[in-house]
Design a protein around this nucleic acid. Structure first.
Lengths: 164, 164
DNA sequence: GCTTGACCTGAACCATGGTTTAAGTATGAG
DNA sequence: CTCATACTTAAACCATGGTTCAGGTCAAGC
């Protein structure tokens, strides 16, 4: 169990990979992209501090929610750098995703409802159908809902983390 | 208006692009990928039949719903090849997306609800949190919901179009 | 101190959904 | 018939989220 006795030590990339279920190549990729960091040994090998596991968990969870890495990176930057993040820190940045999810759910529901209408008439005509109208983001200057598709506004760092 | 008087003629790639709001490069790409077809003039230029406009509209609409091109291609293959598709044909294949949308909405709602739980406790711990559990597609052999994330099963051609 | 497995790097590659560019050809108005 | 404009192709490029590979180095058990 030597290689997994990580509770008090640092982890190698292989150990973190095993614990997190994320491939070493992905962990190196996250590091290149600035989502995680590591200390280096004198022999240039990576060593991860314990809280990196939670950081990786947050990354994967956020990806499952459909958040792009660039956005995850921005939100991770809201964590304190001078101390190990607390449970409250994690809870605070997790809030960032809720509005985004709500938004996407509403958008999908609106799309589904419009699709149901369109199925009824078999239209999908360029000129008349709200769903298939190409130019104006779906009805922006016609009657009906102003925006059927919204552009994922994914909570920006400025909005969700500056209170702490 | 000569170049736009398409009501009785075939269209060039530029005309179809203008009418559909889709770039010529994208139309050529769709053709390479087998989503649309064209006749060629003696000089090797593309000429599109009138119903291609509706076909392109269907493609863009489906993309807005989040369907990948490969899936759209499969469903387009369900249209009759021996005649111009009717309104009913279009309505029938449009049905393909509804189950998929419903599924994705439910998945997102489940994710959001779990996130709300997790925000409450600030957990996102690899070992305990349903959302961050990496190995088993979120609780497949533990307690709780069997699948939190489903793999987009996007209605397959076999399921939705063979009745006609 | 040697050997084996884990690690290092950069570069190439994969899929998706296209756009851009370069070099050449067709079409149609005058 | 000419000339502008629109078309043709292949290949390179973009972003996203990585994996794979080649060639070389480190660390630890015996």
């Amino acid at each position: 169990m030597t290689s997994l006795a990580w509770d008090a030590k640092e982890a190698t990339v292989g150990e973190l990979a095993e614990r997190s279920g994320v491939a070493p190549s992905a962990l190196r990729f996250y590091e290149r992209e600035g989502l995680i960091t590591s200390r280096r040994t004198t022999g240039n090998q990576r060593r991860y501090s314990r809280d990196t596991l939670r950081r990786v968990a947050f990354i994967r969870t956020s990806q499952k929610l459909g958040i792009p890495l660039a956005t995850i990176r921005e939100v991770l930057a809201l964590l304190p750098e001078d101390r190990t993040p607390t449970r409250e820190d994690w809870a605070r940045i997790s809030e960032c995703w809720r509005d985004d999810l709500d938004q996407r759910i509403r958008t999908l529901q609106r799309l589904r409802d419009n699709l149901t209408d369109c199925i009824g008439c078999g239209c999908l005509s360029i000129d008349r159908c709200r769903l298939s109208n190409p130019y104006d983001a779906l009805g922006a200057h016609g009657p009906g809902p102003r925006r059927l598709l919204e552009e994922d506004p994914a909570c920006t760092p400025a909005e969700c983390g500056t209170e702490g």
